[in-house]
Design a protein around this nucleic acid. Sequence first.
RNA 1: GCGAGUUUAGCUCAGCGGUAGAGCACUCCCCUUUUAAGGGAUAGGUCCCGGGUUCGAAUCCCGGAACUCGCACCA
Length: 511
Amino acid sequence: MTQKPTNPTTTTAATEHAHHTTEHATQIRQGRIDKLDAWRQLGHNPYPYHFEKTSSNAALQAQYEALENGVETEDVVSVAGRVMALRNSGMFIDLQDPSGKLQVFSHKENLSPEMLEALKLVDIGDIIGATGTIRRTPRGELSVKTTKIQMLSKSLLPLPEKFHGLTDLETRYRQRYLDLIMNSESRDTLVKRSLIISEIRKLLTSKDFLEVETPMLQTIAGGAAAKPFKTHHNALDVTMYMRIAPELFLKRLVVGGISEKVFELNRNFRNEGISPKHNPEFTMMELYQAYADYNDMMSLTEEIVTTVALKVLGTTKIDFQGTAIDLTGPWPRKSMIDCVKEETGVDFAAIETDEAARAAAKQLNVFVEEYDTWGYALEKVFEDKVEHKLIQPIHITDYPREISPLAKAHRDNPRLVERFETRVYGWEIANAFSELSDPLDQRQRFEAQMTQRDQGDDEAHEMDEDYITALEYGMPPAGGLGIGIDRLIMILTNSHNIRDVIAFPTLKPKA
RNA sequence: GCGAGUUUAGCUCAGCGGUAGAGCACUCCCCUUUUAAGGGAUAGGUCCCGGGUUCGAAUCCCGGAACUCGCACCA
């Protein structure tokens, strides 16, 4: 392979970037390009291929924790990272790597004249490598006393201000790389996201759940009540939808018996409003366990959440937006009807007709549609009167049959299904059922949904004939559980906006 | 989708009818044991965009855009 040497003449480079930038911004950038050229003049590639980094900053801070002020060692290390501050004409450099900060100390007595010149070509934002000995300054700052600085990547654009940092929310989300450079909280949150997801995988795998993948592109967007993104496959010339849930495919795998326990931890897409709690693409964990019911799923939900909290945070007692939350299990289990009765005094179990249910809701100043049935009225009262008060973890059980077309009828009450939602801080963290395995009942449920759809509910579930066919071959009794991963991460990282737990949240294009 | 707010230098922000401002960053000078280093001197602007009112608009009015926060929908 041959490669032409890079032309160091870059005087026109700034103008390529100049569209819609000020003269000042252009000047700053050109100044840095000039320094980049100067590195080349000194015989150094400012964008080299490799650096032998021996230690992370945090590892050195830990290793030399006991090193006393003013003490020099002869321990030679090579560190690398981004220059975040320059003091005393570059004699002191704050070097940041993902683990933390470390000071680089470049005294002129230790540097060759060439190195001293090169030091002047270092700017805030550059990625450099530094080799030298470990010492702690008389004022207590652990430092690498260098003989050699290497440019590892010349930065052309100025970083935000060192004290206030980058606070503009739009810029933080649009240019997440800048946010991550400047804001350690953003790094911590996204690192914790990764660890949380990793611990969930580890736990489920250790319990013999098999991780599987099901279609993101579906011809029927089923498994939930939501508006899908619509797209088109050209070669097949068919309309396809981005999935709103993997549920029906995961249960097909349970029918097939690939494993008695399966899970998928992946993205769902819903074409709905964006809010501090909603992103159009979000991460869902769904699992299905044969021969289990929703009671088993409640225990499993507690195990997943508490295990992850302990592994990642080291505790199950957390603070969320100033509210103390104790995740320690087991969590209370209370039926939706009992919750509503306790809060409002109205006992929906004693209400016989849809009409009486609507009247009861209106009596409580809860808005209901004229076509709302007993179950919809109950749900609306619950959401309006009870939901926001459920701060500590709780499983709300036994949902109305008509709002849960994929859940098995309750063993003791035909108006209900065996479904629960786990609430933390009022938010739905988990949703689970004893899965409906009776194919004849499932067909009736879909038909009821079709009726809903005809009445104007465009989020009612669609008929899925193949899914019913799968059930007709026989699905074992199974418990299913879905956990909204972004919401869980928000709770565990004390993040009040879902965008803080998603590296690249959905934003409208700028212009 | 509805309502309120925000948008001025690379960043963080003042200014709110009369010549565009500060701190940090940048450039230059001084300074080699600093911690938001310090001292000095410069340079840097589509005041989000488009109309309008006015002798004069960053400022007032109308329309639009993006963002933020509520509400609605939803997980």
